[in-house]
Amino acid sequence: MLLGARIYIKPFALGDAEALLELQKKNRCFFERFSMGRPDDFYSIEGQRKRIKEYEQSQKNDSDYQFGIFTKKKHALIGTINLFQVLRGSLQSAFIGYFLDQEHNGKGYTTEAAKLIVQYAFEELKLHRIEAGVMPHNIGSISVLEKAGFHKEGLAIKNVKINGKWEDHQVLAIINPHDE
C-alpha cells in the first residue's frame, strides 16, 4: 500500500472484485470513451475476479502492476492506476494508465495517485522511464500527467485503436531523476 495525503493505492485483491465491478459499471460510458474494447465478461463479478487473478500473475511476472485508488477516509475504491508493458533490459520502462470515477474528477486524486505510482516505479521497480499516451482532447488527463512531473514529447499519429477508430495520442514521459 502506498499512502498519499487523501488517497492510497494498493494492488487489487479478490476482495476488491465487487467494488471494482461497481466502479466499472457506474462509469461504463465515461471510461469506454478512452479505452479499447472490453471482453464480454468484463461487466460480471466472475470477469472481475478473473482479471484480479491475472493482475496478481502479471505482477509476479514483472510485466504489469495494477492498483486501486482508494479514499483514505472511507476506504472507497474511486479509480484504477497501472504500470503496463514493463520492459527490462536496456529500456527499463513502462506505460502508465488510469481511470477515475467521473464524480471524483478534477479534485486532484489522479495526480496524487500518479505521483505515488511514479515513486513506486522509480524507487521499488528501478525503472528509468514511464510513458503515457493521451488523446489530445483529453486536457484533464494531460494536466494530471504534467502536474505529476511528466513532459510532452510529441504526437503519435493514429497509434491506438479506440472504439473502432485509430486515435492520435499526445506522448508524455517522465525520467527517473536518479538515473541522469
Rank of each mutant, 00 (worst) to 15 (best):
E18D: 09
S44G: 03
N159E: 05
V134T: 11
L145N: 07
H137I: 03
S58P: 00
L14T: 13
S143F: 08
S63I: 12
I52A: 02
Y43E: 04
L14I: 10
L127V: 01
I175R: 12
D64G: 02
G154L: 01
L20I: 02
L127T: 03
L125W: 05
G79P: 00
Q48S: 06
N163G: 13
Y98L: 01
E146V: 07
M36P: 13
I45N: 00
R33E: 15
I81W: 11
F12P: 06
I96C: 06
S35I: 06
E123A: 12
E112M: 03
A132N: 06
I130V: 08
Q24S: 13
A94P: 10
I52L: 08
A173D: 09
F31S: 03
G4N: 01
K10Q: 10
L155T: 08
D168P: 06
E103L: 05
D40Y: 08
Y109T: 01
F30S: 07
G37M: 09
I69A: 10
I52H: 06
A148P: 06
I81N: 00
V86Q: 11
L23W: 02
A94K: 02
I52M: 05
K50Y: 12
Q102I: 09
E32W: 03
D40H: 13
A121D: 06
E18G: 07
K165A: 11
A156E: 13
P177F: 03
I142F: 02
N163T: 02
A76S: 14
D41F: 04
E46N: 14
K26Y: 08
I78K: 02
E180N: 14
H151Q: 15
F84R: 14
G68R: 03
T110G: 04
V160N: 10
S141P: 03
L21T: 04
A5P: 04
D62L: 14
I174H: 08
Q48N: 02
E46G: 12
L3T: 09
G68D: 05
I117E: 09
E124F: 05
H137P: 04
H151F: 01
F42H: 14
Y109N: 10
L23G: 00
I45W: 00
F150H: 05
L2H: 12
T80H: 08
G15T: 08
Q24Y: 11
G15D: 01
E153D: 14
I7W: 07
T71P: 07
Q102N: 08
S44M: 07
E124Y: 03
T71L: 15
P39E: 06
M36S: 14
A132V: 03
F70D: 04
E22H: 11
S90A: 13
I142W: 07
G164Y: 01
I117T: 04
N176Y: 07
F84G: 05
K60A: 09
E54M: 11
